[in-house]
Simulated scan of single mutants.
Amino acid sequence: MPRLIMFLAIPAVLFLLPWWTLIAAPTDGAGPLFQLGSVVFLLGYLCLPASMFLGHGPRQSDAASIVGDTLLGVMWVVFSWSLIGTVAGLGLALAGVDNRAAIVAASVLAISAALVAWGIFEARRVPRVRTVDVAIRGLGPGLDGLRVVVITDTHFAALDRLRWSERVVDVVNAQHPDIACHAGDLADGSVAKRHPQVDPLGKIEAPLGRYYITGNHEYFGDAQGWIDHMTSIGWQPLRNQHETVSRGGDQLVIAGIDDPTGVGLPGHGPDLKTALAGADPHTPVVLLAHQPKQIADTAAAGIALQISGHTHGGQIWPFHYLVRLDQPVVAGLSRHTDNTQLYTSRGTGFWGPQLRVFAPSEITVLILHPERAES
């Protein structure tokens, strides 16, 4: 019962404030525009939980999930700007401005429409390449300039993004990666339904290895199926294990751990000690861990660099403020001890709503260099 209440209450909040801002306040709660707008908002409110249940519940209807996810994203944008508009309206009232409700409604509607259109474009475009130089303590000179290309949170789902997947592969290969990584949340749905969108990843070329870890969304579905499928297309899943790569006579450990949600599946769940068992303690380690908050254990182990995703950079502003309550970092390179850094990708795809607002997607090129001693 509490879950049902939350399932209905959250959409109610998302619709109630925009209804007041766009419909009730500017019409003074009367007239045909008020009546028509109220009916539209009521239908939207009923549609959101219904389509989300049909799309993400037992039926797994792709059509319903597209409707529900899109409506959720649009209403988050409208809700956010309705809240801002309400604050602005108070300022207009203090300034004695007439027709402030109409001014606020028109502004919120115009800004929301523009951001939704832009957000859809940003979400569906091929991500920009973000290049970051990372100094690694103890990295040998033979590995100076090593190119680690990271994709993550592709979330292949109901929208068929096969062509997008192929273009992402082209961009990744154009970066000439030495190592390619997928940091989890590969797809939403079964292997049978989603593998055509995933299969192009098998064409990524990286001479020192292609490595994949599970994210939380794999554990919402068929995690082992996706692990097996990625193996079948030439990727090396790192399930609490590591590989050692060599170039120019120097070595680097590439390790990976399961997502914390894996503890619900027998034999799964993060185990950093097992992942590093047998690794040369004098060789720097790059760890793939889906969630940034796993950095606490990473830093305690003295690992040089953790690569994560999960946050999507917030995906739709201002959601990143809520993400920050759960994760220590939302995006970018951060240092957590003298020895440990974390790179958090904003993600390559998107989850649910096909919108990205002030949180652009990325294909990341991490260029590793030996850390220079300070003079």
Rank of each mutant, 00 (worst) to 15 (best):
V329Q: 10
D133N: 13
T70A: 12
T152L: 04
R128N: 15
G347N: 01
A117P: 10
G37H: 07
L368E: 00
S112A: 15
G349T: 01
G140K: 07
A359D: 06
E166H: 08
L42C: 10
D326W: 11
I257R: 00
F350R: 00
S361K: 01
T298A: 13
A93I: 13
A304H: 05
C181R: 06
A157P: 09
R210M: 13
H217N: 12
C47E: 11
H336D: 09
V67R: 02
H310G: 08
A296S: 14
H369S: 02
G332L: 09
W351C: 03
S190A: 07
Y219C: 00
I23G: 04
G347K: 03
G215M: 00
F7M: 14
G68T: 01
W164M: 03
V108N: 04
V87W: 00
L186R: 07
L265V: 14
D199S: 13
D69M: 01
L208K: 10
S308V: 04
I316Y: 02
D185Q: 09
A300C: 05
L46S: 05
F156W: 14
A277I: 00
P328V: 07
V168T: 09
I204R: 06
V169F: 02
D326H: 11
G352L: 01
D199K: 13
I103N: 04
S51H: 07
P237A: 04
G140D: 06
V171I: 12
D69A: 04
H312P: 08
F319N: 14
A63M: 12
V39F: 00
L22H: 02
V286S: 05
D185C: 11
